[in-house]
Design a protein around this nucleic acid. Structure first.
Lengths: 102, 102
DNA sequence: TTATATTTGACACATATTGTCAAGTAAATC
DNA sequence: GATTTACTTGACAATATGTGTCAAATATAA
């Protein structure tokens, strides 16, 4: 199972790009990118979007990985993790059905 | 679809307890409890546990509601919300299988 | 060595969270 | 209609968390 960080690092290296180069495009210090790639820091949504741009990764796919990482990390140590996800799914359905449309 | 806040308020009133009384047990100001019940503030996990104690609500069930609320709220406005949950489920499975056992 | 890339940790700053407090509102009772 | 009681509201404070910088430390390679 790949983490978002691993996905990013592998792709970056396969393109022969340096931390410094990618970080410049993201407008953050390379130290942060280094940490993101090693899952020591969580990227922001903005980070993810810009990373997908410069590395030619599928933006939506990377965002899915990013958000699912966050959720999984949040609840993985709970016994009831699976129930939480099931109930969340129902609630999302409900919210989507009842939300004001854009 | 009931919110955690609604569940709490209904139970509290059914037991004839005042905000002030329950809040005292939680060791927070009643203003916060009032807001929690009306979904204007999110409870902490500690809040939830203490509320379940004083109101005789099932602790695990209330925690499930609490955590699923949080997750659903986080992602409900994303198109990919359902995919996120599916992927999160896989990640949780993976993490549980590979984590150090307590 | 020297040069280059990455990692690490201390720090700074911003934003979010969690709570207090006191004044405001609403409903019931005297 | 004044008082009491429960609840609500919003301004504020304290703290925690998130996001980033910087410079020194550590590889890695020439």
């Amino acid at each position: 199972m790949e983490t978002v960080g691993q996905i990013i690092r592998i792709k970056r290296e396969s393109q022969g790009l340096l931390l410094r180069q990618v970080a410049a495009h993201l407008d953050i210090d390379q130290a942060i990118l280094s940490k993101i790639e090693r899952n020591e820091r969580k990227p922001t949504k903005e980070n993810i979007i810009k990373i997908s741009e410069i590395l030619n990764l599928d933006k939506d796919e990377l965002l899915v990985q990013f958000m699912s990482d966050k959720i999984a990390y949040e609840i993985a140590d709970e016994d009831c993790a699976n129930r939480v996800l099931k109930v969340a799914e129902k609630k999302v359905k409900y919210l989507k059905a009842h939300s004001v449309k854009n």
